[in-house]
Amino acid sequence: MTFDSIFQIAFFWFFAILGIAGGIGLITQKNPVMAALSLILNFFSIAGLYLSLQAEFLAVIQILVYAGAIMVLFLFVIMLLNMQDEQNQQFDVMKGLAFLLGLGFFGELLFVFNSFMGKSVSGAFPLGKVEPIGMQMMTNYLFPFEMISVVLLAALIGAIIIAKKHSYK
């Protein structure tokens, strides 16, 4: 076996285990800050898995957008709101419904994964590179791309107006 293939396997297992550990940490930690940090660990591991598919652009954007921007915002809000540790709560109808939904989703995922079993992805994953994404955005998906920017602009203006209204009261 070459160094590359050993390294690839080690790379995959390292990030797979780390990602699952992060996911378990997210739902078992009582302290919201620790839960958010576990989620960051999970996002990071997924970026590592993207890298092993040679989807470099996707991996970098995963870190930049999720681990960097969104999770820092989460942590900031949690810290500023000074949230308390989660208390043990009674089991109720809503929780039962959520449990059933989760179970259904899990079964669905298992079904999808089973259809991938035994198949291997050969070579590079073309969609994760920057050139094909750029090409697609500027040709086939130009209209949706521009629409997204309009929606984001509207959200930005909305946020400013809401903030302004409160400061003038």
Binding site: F57, L64, G68, V72
Partner: peptide, 25 residues
């Protein structure tokens, strides 16, 4: 020789912020 080297550096430096937050907290 990463094809998206600059973006990678911007992204990975941003992670510094998480370290600072956890140091302070």
């Amino acid at each position: 020789s990463f094809s998206v080297g600059v973006l990678y550096i911007i992204a990975i430096i941003a992670v510094d912020v998480i370290g600072l937050l956890s140091a302070g907290w």
